[in-house]
């Protein structure tokens, strides 16, 4: 099951627990729990997308806004 908050989506089954996203999040939004990333402080997320940029396993990403077509 995906974990979602403020557009931030985590795909726990793909997370290998390297901790790169946690270490380089500028707002300390993320934490490791049982060797998987989870959202510790979702309200602080500013949507910079650095976690998605550096996740080697594509296990965390920002959901795109639905655009009016």
């Amino acid at each position: 099951m995906a974990v979602k908050q403020k557009g931030l989506v985590i795909k726990p089954d793909w997370c290998k627990g390297c901790g790169i996203c946690v270490a380089f999040c500028p707002k300390d939004v993320l934490k490791m729990e049982n060797n998987k990333v989870t959202i510790a402080n979702g309200d602080a997320c500013n949507g910079c997308g650095l976690c998605e940029l550096r996740c080697p396993d594509f296990a965390i990403y920002l959901e795109e806004d639905e655009k009016d077509e």
Binding site: I20, C55, D57, F58
Partner: peptide, 17 residues
């Protein structure tokens, strides 16, 4: 084919993305 089989923390996924 995903998730890939590169090791935890391997940078190659970042380069592929």
């Amino acid at each position: 084919k995903l998730p890939h089989i590169w090791c935890p923390g391997c940078g190659h996924g970042i380069v592929m993305r």
